[in-house]
Design a protein around this nucleic acid. Sequence first.
DNA 1: ATGAAAGCGCTAACAA
DNA 2: TTGTTAGCGCTTTCAT
Lengths: 339, 339
Amino acid sequence: MQVKIKDVAKRAGVSVTTVSRVLNGEKYVKDDLKAKVNKAIDELGYAPSQIARSLVRKKTNLIGVIVPDLTSSFYSTILSSIEQVASANDYHLLVCNISEDIDKELKYLNAFQEMRVEGIIIMHEKINEPIRNLIHKIHIPVIFSSVKPMDQKFISVIVDDYAAAFDATKYLIELGHESIGFIGGDMRDITSGQNRYSGYRNAMAASGKKLVYEHIRFGDYKVQSGYDQMKDLLGTETPPTAVFVVSDDMAVGAMNCIRDHNLRVPEDISIMGFDGSLLTELVRPKLTSMEQPIHLMGRVTMEVLLKQIEGDKMPDEDVILAHRLMIRESCRNRNDERN
Amino acid sequence: MQVKIKDVAKRAGVSVTTVSRVLNGEKYVKDDLKAKVNKAIDELGYAPSQIARSLVRKKTNLIGVIVPDLTSSFYSTILSSIEQVASANDYHLLVCNISEDIDKELKYLNAFQEMRVEGIIIMHEKINEPIRNLIHKIHIPVIFSSVKPMDQKFISVIVDDYAAAFDATKYLIELGHESIGFIGGDMRDITSGQNRYSGYRNAMAASGKKLVYEHIRFGDYKVQSGYDQMKDLLGTETPPTAVFVVSDDMAVGAMNCIRDHNLRVPEDISIMGFDGSLLTELVRPKLTSMEQPIHLMGRVTMEVLLKQIEGDKMPDEDVILAHRLMIRESCRNRNDERN
DNA sequence: ATGAAAGCGCTAACAA
DNA sequence: TTGTTAGCGCTTTCAT
C-alpha cells in the first residue's frame, strides 16, 4: 500500500493541510513544522499522487502526441525537440505510434480525451471524418506539426512546402539540368503531397520546361519506395539527369537504386532530397536537400501549444518556418561542362 | 466544464451507479436503461475521466519509458515495438528522452512515481547511486531493455553481448583477416562496453592473434565518434584490414571516414557493425552486422513487464535473445585471394 | 436490477 | 499560522 498524505501528517504530528502546504511550497508554515514534515516525507518515502492532484486541480500536465512512424529519423527528431520543451515546462508526453492504422489513432484520441491531456500534437494529415469530428468535439487544443490537414480550423507549424519545392527545383534548373524528374509523396496529402508537387511543376513551367510525365512518380516517403520509383525512372527511355525527391528517406532509396544499377550520383544522375534529416550527412555522397528546420519545428510546435493551453493566446494562424537549401554533394553542376 | 457521470445520469434519468455499470459493461442492467444511458452519453459527448477512475481503481495503465536518444534508429525501433505491445494491452507510454542528462532522468523517475506508472522501462545502463536507490525504493516493476546495469536485482532483456562480439570477431578471423581493429563503446557500460570488448579480445586470443592496442579505440556509439576513431586508426602505421565496430551508427561513421580518405570498403578495409539497425540496409556497401533482434527485444521487454505488473510471475532472470550474424557487403574474404 | 452513500488521495475554502 | 471539511469524478459495497 502506497503511503499517503495522511500517513505523513500523522508521522509529523500535523494536519494534512500543513503537509499539503509544504508540498506546494506555500509560505505560511513555520520552519520547525516544515522540517518535521520533510523529515516524515523522507522517512516514509512519500511521493504525492499526481492522479489525486489532477483530480482536484483539473490539471494533468499531459500532452498527447501522435506520430506516424517512430522509426523515421524525421519524426523522431521532431519528437525529441517536443519532449525537450515539454519536459522543461513540466509537461509529460503520452506517445502513440500509428503506422497507417487509422483505427488506432481514433482509439488513442479517445484515450487522450479520457486521460484529460491538455493538448494534442499530430504529425500526419490523413484525417478522416470520424477523427475530424472527434477533434472538434473534444475541447482540447490540437496542433499539427510539419503537416497541414485540409480543415481550416486546425493550426499547423510547417514550412511553405510549395515554395520549398519550387526553390529546390529551381536550383536543379540553375545547375543546368534540362530533364528533371520528380518522386513525390501521397497526393492525398496537401502539404507534402500536393504542395510539393505544385512547387515542382511551377518551377519547371517558370523556366519554360515541359513536364515529362514519364519522369514523375509518387511514393510513400519511405526508403523502399524511393528505391522502387527510381527503378522505374531508370527504366524509361531517357532517364532524367536530375531527380527531385520529396523526402530524404526516399532520396536515399533513390541513390541506392542508382548505385545498384552501376550509375553514379551525381555524375550520372543528381538527387535532391527534402527534409534535411540526419541521413543527409550520413550517406555518401552527402545528400543535397531542401531542409526543414526540424528541431525548431518541434520546439515551436510545443511552445505554441503551451501558449494555447495557458490561454495566453490562441494563434489562429499557421506558423510558417523558413526552409533552407542545404547544398551538399548529390547534385552536379552541368553548366560549364562540355556536353 | 467537462461533462461528468452525474450529468449523464440526470439526462438519462438513472443513478450514477447505473451509468457506471453500463460504462463498465456489467450485466445487471436492463436493455432499455442501457439504451437511455448510451443515448445520453452520445448526446452529451461524455468521456469518463481516467484520472478519477485511476484514483479509485488504483490502476493507471501507464508505463514510463526512458530512452537515451530518441533520434537513434536503434532506440526508436525498440520503442515502437514496445508501444505496439503496450497499446495492444491498453497501456500507454510516457516517454522521456534523457540525452546524457542524468538529472533529467532522476526528475522523470520521480514524476513516474508520482503519476503512479505501473512499470518502467529503461534503455541505458549508466545508473548512478541516487537513481539506483530511487528505483529500489519505489515499488514499481522496472525492466531494462538492451542493456544490463551492474545491479543484480534488475532484470534485463538483452542479447549475450560477449558471445555476439566473440562471434563477430571470429567471422572476421575466418575471413582471413590478420589484423583486426576494434572500435568499442563506453567502458563504463557493462553490456555494450565491457562485454563486447571481452568478446573481441577472447576471439582474438582463441585464434592466437595478439592484440594491437594501437588498433583498439573507444567511442560513444554515435556516428561522429565512429568517424573520429576510424580516422585515428587510419593514422596508425599499418592500419588494420578489418575493424569490428560495436554499433551500426559508429560503423557507418567509420565507413564514411574510410571513403573520405579515398579508401574503399570492403576492398581496402572491412567493417563489421553491431545492432542490425535500419542503417545496415541503407548504406552502400550494405553493412555486415551482428544483429540484435531489435523488434523482438522491444516486444519481449513489454511482455515481460506486463507479466510482472499483472503478477503472473516476476521473472528473476534476464531474458537472453539470440543474436545473428547478418552478412552483407562490408566485409571482404581474404582467404582465396593472392596477397 | 437499481440506487444511496462511502471513499480513492489530494487541494482549497473557510474557520479558528 | 494551522486545522476542519467539503469536494474533485468516479467505483463499489451494501441495501433494497
